[in-house]
């Protein structure tokens, strides 16, 4: 019986050249690193986009000219709090995640 393996892929299934597909880190949800999440007060939001611009993880999505706000994708938000810090209207609050 073969020894049990820790391997994630068989030799024959590896892509030639040990490559990866573009943007495939999306499969890895970094959201569970988070201890606090950004909560936005849309009343105060002026749609300036600083949260979107300054997010190191690129988690904010532009909701468009009609909705006029940026929505964080909590699957990836690591909870660093840069958005809350840089928001000129202080309309983002970092709220502790319940454990």
């Amino acid at each position: 019986m073969p020894r049990e393996t820790d391997a994630i892929m068989k030799v024959k299934d590896l892509p030639p050249g040990f490559t990866a597909e573009p943007g495939s880190t999306l499969e890895f949800k970094t959201g569970d690193w988070r201890s606090a999440r950004p909560v936005l007060d849309r009343e105060k939001c002026i749609y300036c986009g600083f949260c979107y611009i300054y997010c190191p993880d690129g988690v904010y999505q532009d909701m468009g000219k009609d909705e006029k706000w940026f929505k964080p994708d909590l699957d990836y938000c690591k909870g660093c709090g840069v958005c809350a810090q840089e928001c000129p209207k202080k309309c983002i609050e970092m709220v502790l995640e319940e454990v």
Binding site: T25, Y54, G58
Partner: peptide
């Protein structure tokens, strides 16, 4: 973004922010 989310940079990494922009 040209650099997709799901990368393993530390929380609040200024380097990956620079790279992303």
């Amino acid at each position: 973004d040209v650099l997709a989310s799901g990368h393993r940079a530390c929380q609040g990494c200024g380097e990956v922010l620079a790279l992303r922009l």
